[in-house]
Structures are given as structure tokens and as C-alpha cells.
Design a protein around this nucleic acid. Structure first.
Lengths: 233, 233
DNA sequence: CCGACTTCAAAGGTACTACTTTTCGCGCGT
DNA sequence: ACGCGCGAAAAGTAGTACCTTTGAAGTCGG
């Protein structure tokens, strides 16, 4: 355990154990225990605990120890926590939650992008839409190239919104798209309408037509939505 | 600086200085420097740096020091960062970004809440809507009671969505509503339609009518939207 | 027998020191 | 001018000693 920082290793170990429920709410740890478990020094153990504390995953009290907190107090948006969830038994739930968030956020991002995107971004957006149409039309909707372009398109849309929070959703959205792809849920020939929707969003943004961009994006999200809600309660 | 943990103090100090730009992107710190600046021990300084590192605000490299990272790599959703922004010169921008996010998220939350809220939540939602109508109708739209009920309403709506990410937006939404209130932007008599919208959302959720809930919430968000976009570029 | 008060020890919080590892940057030699 | 290696700077890790808080057991008095 000398290649990467010990700190990262210990943090990851604890984070995963808490995120996947092996350390359930209310479980109590001690620094000494962590030192021993992870074969790390006090320094390293403390730093890992501090980080988990800022994520709301544990609370540390004198004389008591380090207590695992209820999920409701965890920082649901922390990239780290999302990764831990994606690596554990809650992977599916996490992907669904992120997918729902995406459906909500992208139309707003499109709206804002139409008002704020610079010309370079507009051009790039149209280029990516073109590429999607090209690849999709040739039955390569399940290829890595298509996925890459799809991720880039939605990433750029969020970025162009000029809203830091929306921009920060780019990483989760990538996870959603890649997750869907890895399960073989993307057909070689994209679902009817998908390609046109991307294109219409790109054009609306380039035209600075916020309402149209939002409408088209929402339409696209509706197309995507069906697949998610199939398995829903 | 003994009342609260030293750690929190140092973290807050550094976090604020970075968030408000006093330590701009590319600035380089050293642990020794931090120890001296904040009059803290190495231990405390290290822990604070670790936390900032997990927030993406700094990166620490051997032989180089601790470098402030570009804003784009910061964890925009971290409650801590949001607080630091709200306390600094970017308060307004932060509130606007959160308001945009809220406009995007609430209709989805309403949709999901209609499908997932339990009966207790439905009842409470209607009770809060009733209270808003009561207070608003009596010209108390700018009272603390109204604000409290308003926050509780939207908080509950997000919580009832059953989506951890949407639920986590409750805190920012509170900040948005309180921020608006503190600036005296809330009139004694709520804007035409506001009260009915709350009520319609509550009823739709209670009826389990997801589409109606989403539609009504979106309508409400449109009402709210006008005020935000006034000052926008 | 019960309640309040005292004492004690467990656990985290802080400080300090010593040592290790990485890596930047300079200078030397080719 | 180019590359190679040496040295120092700074973070990383370890370990120890001591402080502070606080839950809980035990004790005393009513």
C-alpha cells in the first residue's frame, strides 16, 4: 500500500463499507480500531474520519467514538459518495436517482445555454449533434464513439448553462449514460426521434431561443424517461 | 478560538478565503504557512487541507505545496462551499444559480412525490398549503410564519420525492427562500396565483396524479421565475 | 429505595517531533 | 544545448505525550 497515498486507501475502504451498509447507521468505530483495521497511523485514520465527517457520513464525539450517521444526513451530491454507491449494491438505485435528476436538470440547462452559450460552444454542440446523427444513422448507436459523442453533447449542454451546479451534474450524467450503455440497453439504431431531438436542441441553443431549447430538451428527456420508469415502483 | 474545534475554524477561514477569491486559482500555500497564519498545529492544518482537497478546491503536491484549483473542479454542491459563497461577494450569483436549480428540480420532485409520498406526507403537504393560503390571504406573506411554512412545504415536497439528490436540495432551497425574504422581496400579499399553485400541487400529489403535480409545480416555478430573470444577462 | 452528586476512565482533540518519499530545479559535465 | 544527477523543499507517515470532554459507574444523603 505504498503506491498511492495511504489516506486515499483508508478513506475509500471506510467510505465503501459505510455506503454499502456493512457499517450500518448507528455503528460505532474508534480511531484505534480504524488504525488497527487499516494498518494505518493515527494521522491517516484521523484525516479519513475528518473527510467522512464533512460528508455527513459519520459524527465523532468524545468518549463515544465515531458514529455512522443516517443516510439522510449524507451529502448526496459528493462525487465520492456517488462513486461508492455505484460500486456497491445500491448501484441501480443511484443510477435511477441520477437519471431522474438529469431529466429535471437538462431542460433548464438547455434554456440557460440558449441565453448564455458562446459561439464556440454553439458550434461544438451542433458538430456533436451532427456526429450523433451520422453515427446513429449508420447503426452505430451502441458504439463507443456514439457514447463518447453523446456524453460530450450533454456535458457541453450542462457546461454552457453557465450554472455551476448544473455543470457539476456532468459527471453523474456521464455515469448514467455509461451505465445504461454497459448494460447493453443502447440499441444500434437509436430510438425514433432521439437524433432529431439532439439536433433540434443544438439548433435552438445556437439560435438563442431559450423556450424552444427547453421544449426540445424536455421532449428528449421524455423519450429517455420511458426506459427508467419501467422498473419503477 | 477554543470554544469550537480549531479544525472548523481553520477550515472555515481557508474555505472562505478561497471561495471569495482572496486566494485565487493557482495560489500556492504551504502547510507551514497555514500553521503560522491560523496559529494552528500541523495536525489541524493537515486535516483542513484534506477536506478542502476532497472538495476539489486545492490540490496538494510534494515539493510544490498546496495549490488552489480552478472553480470548475470544485464540488459545487457541497453545503460548505455553498455557505462560503453565500457569505462572500458571490452571494447573489450563488442564490441565482440555486434558484435556477430549484426551478428545474421541483416539478420533477412533485412528479415523483405524487407517486411515492405516503399518506402522512400528503396530509402534511395539504396542511401546509392550507396554512399558506390562510396566512397569505390575511396579508402576512412577508411574515416569518409564512416563510417557515413555505420552506416546510417545499422541503417536504423534495423529501417526498424519495430521491436522495432532490432531497438534498432542501437546504439550498431554504437558503433561496430566506435570501429572497431577507431582501424584502416578498410582498405581504403573495403574487397572484401563488397560493392556488401550492394548493393544487398538494392536491395533485395527494391524488397521486404525477402529471398534474408536475404541471402545477412547473406553473408555480414559472411564477417564481420572473423575479429571478429580471436581473439576468 | 431513589435521586443527585462525585469521581474515573475512555475516547477523541491537539501538539510536537522525527523520519520518509517524492520531485522540482539548479548546476555540472558532456 | 541537452541531459543527467544531486540536493533541498515540502508533503506524507508514524508515534508519542498530553489535554479536554463526557458517559457511566459508584457513592453519599435524604
Amino acid at each position: 500500500m505504498t503506491s498511492t497515498d495511504m489516506h486515499a486507501g483508508v478513506l475509500d475502504d471506510l467510505g465503501r463499507r459505510i455506503a454499502d451498509g456493512r457499517l450500518p447507521e448507528g455503528a460505532v468505530l474508534t480511531l484505534s480500531g480504524i488504525e488497527k483495521d487499516c494498518e494505518a497511523s493515527r494521522t491517516v485514520a484521523r484525516e479519513a474520519v475528518r473527510v467522512l465527517e464533512t460528508l455527513g457520513m459519520v459524527a465523532s464525539r468524545r468518549r463515544v467514538g465515531i458514529t455512522v450517521q443516517p443516510r439522510s444526513s449524507w451529502d448526496a451530491f459528493s462525487p465520492r459518495l456517488i462513486d461508492w454507491n455505484l460500486a456497491g449494491p445500491f448501484r441501480q438505485r443511484q443510477l435511477e436517482a441520477l437519471a431522474e435528476l438529469r431529466v429535471a436538470a437538462e431542460p433548464m440547462a438547455a434554456h440557460l445555454a440558449a441565453r448564455r452559450a458562446d459561439s464556440r460552444q454553439c458550434a461544438e454542440l451542433r458538430r456533436l449533434a451532427d456526429r450523433l446523427v451520422d453515427l446513429g444513422g449508420r447503426g452505430l448507436g451502441d458504439s463507443d464513439d456514439y457514447l463518447e459523442a453523446d456524453v460530450a453533447f450533454h456535458d457541453l449542454l450542462l457546461t454552457a448553462s453557465g450554472n455551476p451546479q448544473l455543470t457539476a451534474l456532468a459527471r453523474p450524467v456521464r455515469a448514467v449514460l455509461e451505465g445504461r450503455n454497459r448494460l447493453g440497453l443502447t440499441p444500434p439504431l437509436p430510438v425514433e426521434g432521439t437524433l432529431e431531438e439532439h439536433m433540434r436542441v443544438a439548433i435552438a441553443v445556437a439560435d438563442g431561443d431559450a423556450e424552444a431549447a427547453e421544449r426540445c430538451s424536455r421532449s428528449h428527456m421524455r423519450t429517455v424517461w420511458g426506459e427508467v420508469s419501467r422498473t419503477d415502483g
